[in-house]
Design a protein around this nucleic acid. Sequence first.
DNA 1: TCCTTTGGTAGCGAGTCGAAACTTTTTAGA
DNA 2: TCTAAAAAGTTTCGACTCGCTACCAAAGGA
Lengths: 187, 187
Amino acid sequence: MKEAPDIHIAALLERIGRLLASDAQANGLLPVHWETLRYLDRANRFSMTAAALTAYLGLTKGTVSQSLNSLETKGLVRKRVDLRDRRSKRLSLTAEGKALLKNDPLLLTSQAINALSPSAKDALADSLQTFLSQRLATQDRQAFGQCRDCRYFARRHEKGKPFFCQLLQEPLNESDSLSICYEQQPA
Amino acid sequence: MKEAPDIHIAALLERIGRLLASDAQANGLLPVHWETLRYLDRANRFSMTAAALTAYLGLTKGTVSQSLNSLETKGLVRKRVDLRDRRSKRLSLTAEGKALLKNDPLLLTSQAINALSPSAKDALADSLQTFLSQRLATQDRQAFGQCRDCRYFARRHEKGKPFFCQLLQEPLNESDSLSICYEQQPA
DNA sequence: TCCTTTGGTAGCGAGTCGAAACTTTTTAGA
DNA sequence: TCTAAAAAGTTTCGACTCGCTACCAAAGGA
């Protein structure tokens, strides 16, 4: 590996992407379904909507609506109307949905990662994260980073709800601070 | 980035894969079409068949057959029956197909890669290559590596055709040695 | 009040994709 | 040599994604 032209790395990323996508056709679910379940598992309460999911996946509203219908029919996702904004519906994983994530085909991929050396892993994670941010920024798409890395994230030093979102004016707990957020803007 | 758990890296890879796939819907072509054009551009003469492409993409024969028909109708790919083995058809890119590769959406990705430091690039290429080989091996799938990295690759020190394939008993030139091959087995 | 924006749905058409059945050609075995 | 199995591709079918357009209802301004 004496040379590493950019186009070669790009081709590797694309090829690996396809490989993972074809692995993801497990348990009768399609790749986009797995992505949806993972998103709902990791997103905070402000981001559990079809609109946020649409932005995350980079698809159109109609497509996402259909996928969610399919997942709801399968009993993996639940939709409830938001009482504050009655246009919106709040999404959540059902117990079945959460259970299914234990069989996430991504765990297979995770094992192949395990074969890398610790330093290679760190470097890989760094590079991929940088690349992803870069790529999303050039398309004016949200980063969906962790809450705690957001410019609106503040510490209040209170028990139970030690953090605070200055954008939504909402208290945050430890778990919130680790979730990914639709509104997140890197500090 | 103090921690880099395997599952996190796996999720990054999957997310980036989807991102690239949605970019790849350019020029009216679908992601799998671009992958096909790129494959035919990089494969050696022993690997320009639907069967090899099927193994490369990890899809079924039927699906690939349909994709190729679509590309042939668009005038990007040509099919000709192989005179030695009349079951087989030899694929090739048309002039239009080669020209279209100049607009490969992968070039966009390539630019985002460019933002990384040289050392990060090298590390990234290494890690991705290792990961890909690992992943393909566990599924008993071919590596599709470069001809010159194959255990059947030999040097003959003759002009014009300086190399030789000990598996297919065929002379190879410089260009052959750089192509990816269906039969390739890492040395 | 009117008008725009936002969140979501419904229907359409194109096309992937897997599965299975099928044709033709090649190869291996008795 | 005859025959059976394997290999290369094609075709058809059904399920589903995905973009697109049109649509509806709620929210927010001017």
